[in-house]
């Protein structure tokens, strides 16, 4: 498994972080993990819903000093 890819979408508003994730997920292999950093609360909620809909694995989310960290694994 490759090193976890970080997608830094801090400062971008919905649907910017999601679109950055979608562009980024195409660049990693199946099984690789990604962490999205977002200051947009709506996107932090939206990304796990998108993962569930399209079938990638949501590994968890947490907030730290105003930044949401959304962790996921590409599964297909």
């Amino acid at each position: 498994m490759a090193e976890k890819k970080i997608i830094d979408a801090r400062g971008s508003f919905c649907p910017g972080p999601l679109m950055e994730l979608i562009a980024g997920i195409k660049m990693v292999e199946i099984g690789d993990e990604i962490e999205v950093l977002s200051t947009d609360k709506g996107s932090a909620a939206e990304i796990p819903q998108w993962l569930k809909k399209v079938g990638h694995e949501h590994l968890g989310s947490h907030e730290e000093a105003g930044v949401w960290h959304v962790n996921l694994k590409r599964t297909k």
């Binding site: 400062g11 971008s12 508003f13 649907p15 910017g16 679109m19 979608i22 562009a23 195409k26």
Partner: peptide
Amino acid sequence: LMEQKNVPPFKILFEQAVTLG
């Protein structure tokens, strides 16, 4: 407010709809 903040421009989103989706 969208003008002032970092909201993705609508033309970029339409283009991403095509290129990514």
